[in-house]
Design a binder for these strands. Structure first.
Lengths: 136, 136
DNA sequence: TCCTACGATGGACGCAGTCCAGGTCAAGAA
DNA sequence: TTCTTGACCTGGACTGCGTCCATCGTAGGA
């Protein structure tokens, strides 16, 4: 049983075979899958699972803060199961590979008060872009 | 004549009424419009202009580095005419308003070599999220 | 003024994501 | 164990954003 599923159960989630499979797909592979990729992998284990259910389940995991949504290009959103350790993303402009990276210092502290325009700023997402070794 | 259009002409762009109108729409209003909003405003000045032309023109301006594409939500891309001064974005989670902001220090220097995994890192985009004064 | 290659048009198409009416089932109660 | 019920799942239609393409129009050089 995955940690993710355990945490969700602890929050009063009804555990169904569909939700289990989606959680396992995300937990098993620490890459950043699109919803359709999650669906494709889920179908291997549970052929009847529908696309709508995958979208719903991913959306619920995101609202519960157990999974992060990242959209680094204008295309499909990707889902990041590594929601409990703060991190940023490094994206290859060639092949689209995404890696989790850790920065020194807190990005929020780099935004001076006079640049906040009265906003209550609560988060900062950094996307680093470049070429991976294979694409360079 | 807008600066933007002057620069584009200098790059050998054929200047048509459609391209002029798109450039003027972007230049006139320093907000971050979606392609459809650009189209809606362009139609007021040139009723026959097509959606495809607006998309093509925006895409060309982006490839020429004269306009930036920003996608802060998973929805429509927005176009930022302020491509020549490095800046980051502050987005209201309530209403979606986007403001250009300037950080202290260079975000690239916050990514240590051992976190680069052999990538040639060339850019960093920061999206700050929070609530604007009206939404707070 | 003429020519022609580059640009514009608009309608069809594709992908990502959402919605909905109706059928199904997990989990608590007895 | 069986019953009950409301939460959940399904599949197909639908929407929004963006792209493609065949055809027509025109900016700008000769």
């Amino acid at each position: 049983m995955s940690d993710l599923l355990e945490r969700l159960r602890g929050r009063g989630w009804r555990v169904t075979s569909q939700r289990r499979v989606v959680a396992e797909v995300l937990d098993g592979d620490h890459v950043h899958l699109t919803a359709d990729e999650v669906h494709a992998r889920a179908v291997r284990r549970l052929p009847e699972i529908s696309r709508a259910t995958v979208y719903n389940t991913l959306g619920e995991m995101v609202s519960l803060g157990e999974v992060l949504e990242v959209s680094t290009d204008g295309r499909a959103k990707r889902y990041d199961p590594n929601a409990h350790r703060p991190h940023q993303h490094l994206v290859c402009s060639g092949c689209g590979t995404i890696r989790d990276v850790h920065t020194t210092g807190d990005p929020l502290s780099q935004l001076p008060a006079e640049e906040r325009f009265g906003f209550t700023v609560s988060a900062a997402e950094i996307t680093y872009r470049g070429l991976c070794p294979s694409c360079a």
